[in-house]
Amino acid sequence: MSPLINFFLYALIAMCFMCLYRVIKGPTIADRMVGIDILGILVVGITAIIAMKTNRMFILDIGIAWIILSFIGTLTLAKYLGRNKLNE
């Protein structure tokens, strides 16, 4: 069981690097924000798998807090981006 779970972790981390590629390369600001948003959701999956591997429940708490914080961060960035136009 444990080698398969290690493989899952490596796969998820590889996906995180795919998102980071989009964050670094992205032609516009909105692309970078999409990458950050998706990265936040992937990290929740990573915390769930680590909680399953180590049998500790507080790691899933980190995941729940991460959902809420990434949600608030994305909303703030979106508000900043949307208001930029109106101030011109």
Binding site: I29, I64, I67, I68, F71, T74, L75, A78, L81, G82
Partner: peptide, 23 residues
Amino acid sequence: SIPLLFLASTVAAHSLARAAYHY
């Protein structure tokens, strides 16, 4: 955390799309 994730991701996607269009 499943319904929490549902609400958070959909609302974030909606606000991102709207902000990108308005920009």
